Amino acid sequence: MSGLLGNFVTQIGILVNDVEKVSTAYAEFFGLEKPEIIVTDTEDIAQTRHNGVATQARAKLAFFDMGSLQLELIEPDHEPSTWRDYLNEHGEGPHHIAFVVEGMKEKIMLLEGKGFPLQQKGEYTGGRYAYMDTFKELKVIVELLENDKDNGEE
């Protein structure tokens, strides 16, 4: 049986109210170095769209590499976003599981055709992301990540 996206989860995203505090707790718990907190790109670069509408939403992020899986801590600002909506509705905790894909537009269309609407998408340095609304069925959002190919062939 073939799945819609494969079965290799690359990341788990967790929403938090205070990324500094929670990243310190994760670092101490797992005996890891506390990662640098980064802020998502500005609107002109990110081109973030939430429910089809442009938004200035940004978030503070901390990434922990845990073997084959990355944990992403996300502290959203108060602009409209899937992060803010989810945090307001569900509180702190897991938000998404992410998969690396090729052919982002095709994967979005495939999932939308199966009844999983695009919730938010945007760009980041080196690629793009899309959050698909799979919560009703999977109890978590699915994020698609597509990284730009950097093999010198343009």
Rank of each mutant, 00 (worst) to 15 (best):
Ser2Cys: 02
Leu5Tyr: 08
Asn7Met: 08
Val9Asp: 06
Thr10Asp: 15
Ile12Met: 12
Ile12Cys: 14
Glu20Asn: 13
Lys21Glu: 15
Val22Glu: 12
Ser23Phe: 00
Thr24His: 15
Tyr26Ile: 06
Phe30Gln: 01
Gly31Asn: 07
Glu33Trp: 00
Ile37Ala: 06
Thr40Glu: 12
Thr42His: 13
Glu43Lys: 12
Asp44Trp: 07
Asp44Glu: 14
Ile45Pro: 13
His50Asp: 12
Asn51Trp: 13
Val53Arg: 15
Gln56Lys: 15
Ala57Tyr: 09
Ala59Phe: 10
Phe63Trp: 08
Asp65Trp: 10
Met66Pro: 02
Met66Glu: 06
Gly67Thr: 10
Glu72Cys: 04
Glu72Leu: 05
Glu75Asp: 10
Asp77Phe: 01
Asp77Ile: 02
Glu79Asn: 13
Leu87Asp: 00
His90Gln: 12
Ala98Gln: 06
Ala98Ile: 02
Ala98Glu: 07
Phe99Thr: 02
Phe99Glu: 10
Phe99Gln: 13
Val100Gly: 00
Val101Glu: 10
Val101Lys: 05
Val101Asn: 07
Gly103Gln: 14
Gly103Val: 02
Glu106Phe: 00
Ile108Val: 11
Met109Val: 03
Glu112Trp: 13
Gly115Ala: 10
Gly115Gln: 13
Phe116Pro: 04
Lys121Thr: 05
Gly122Ile: 07
Gly127Lys: 06
Arg128Val: 02
Ala130Glu: 11
Thr134Trp: 10
Glu137Trp: 11
Val140Ser: 09
Val140Leu: 06
Ile141Gln: 11
Glu146His: 03
Asn147Gly: 01
Lys149Val: 09
Lys149Arg: 11
